[in-house]
């Protein structure tokens, strides 16, 4: 749970560096178009280029390989899973075959090639997303969402959820360590029972906290209106320049694969 707090917290995005200082809409434009180009790609070069450029950009702001590796582990495993599934189901040319529990399995070349393409798309896409999350705070994303006319209610719920997530993680940790000290996790059934009461306690705490938060908000002038009062300023000249640079970079990346 402690690890979760560190992973979910946007402390990288709170730092001040050249990537966090770029306007959020410019970043969203680059990441959005990049993700679409990534899934439209029909060879492995473009996803690989996205992977490498995003990785290089993150290295410039001193994001460690361990941090990136921790986040990339699950998507990579998923990519391998898909590689095997595609290898088993697509194509004609068998490269490896066998039987498991009487079930015929055959890995085919064409399927493995498609699987490899998907694997690189996973790597490229996830690295693009990490580029956004490591350089943009959630409040900025909420402000951009408001600018994009996403319903206010959704943004408010997102703000509340993210705001109180860390508080509840902390409470859960405290309760878990108390349960552990009273041998609450010694057997499987005891563990499940402890998680049950922990879940119940979480619900009670969250509802009590919501009541208190609402009272506090009313006293601070909240009348059911907007939670976000700060708005994004209009794009400045350097933002347009950055937007143009991102566009040129995307076009270059798309064209580069033809000369590879």
């Amino acid at each position: 749970m402690e690890i979760l707090k560190h992973i979910v917290m946007d402390h990288f995005a709170q730092r001040s560096n050249w990537l966090t200082n770029i306007e959020v809409r410019v970043k969203l434009f680059y990441i959005g178009i990049g993700l679409v180009l990534n899934i439209l790609s029909d060879d492995i070069m473009l996803p690989l280029l996205f992977f490498i450029t995003s990785l290089l950009l993150l290295i410039t702001i001193k994001v460690s390989f361990i941090t990136l590796g921790l986040r990339m582990m699950m998507p990579f495993l998923f990519g391998i899973f898909i590689l095997v599934i595609m290898g088993l189901h697509t194509g004609e040319t068998v490269v490896f075959s066998g039987t498991i529990f009487g079930y015929e399995l055959a890995l085919k070349r064409e399927g493995l090639q498609i699987g490899l393409l998907l694997f690189t798309k996973v790597a490229g896409g996830v690295m693009l997303m990490l580029l956004l999350s490591f350089t943009t705070a959630i409040t900025k994303i909420c402000m951009a969402a408001r600018w994009m006319k996403i319903p206010e209610t959704l943004i408010e719920v997102l703000s509340f959820l993210y705001r109180y997530l860390f508080l509840l993680i902390e409470k859960t940790e405290t309760m878990m360590s108390s349960q552990r000290s009273r041998l609450g996790y010694v057997t499987w059934f005891k563990t499940i029972k402890s998680f049950g009461s922990l879940g119940g306690m979480l619900i009670i705490r969250s509802i009590t906290r919501a009541e208190n938060a609402h009272i506090a908000m009313i006293s601070r002038g909240y009348d059911g209106g907007r939670v976000l009062t700060v708005q994004l300023t209009p794009l400045a000249r350097n933002d347009y320049a950055m937007l143009l640079s991102c566009g040129i970079l995307l076009v270059l990346l798309s064209c580069l694969r033809f000369f590879w």
Binding site: V157, I207, M217, D223
Partner: peptide
């Protein structure tokens, strides 16, 4: 009016 903080907090609890 207090429903939105409630949804946000219950959502956070379910996330945890």
């Amino acid at each position: 009016p207090g429903f939105l903080p409630l949804v946000g907090l219950v959502g956070a609890a379910v996330f945890v």
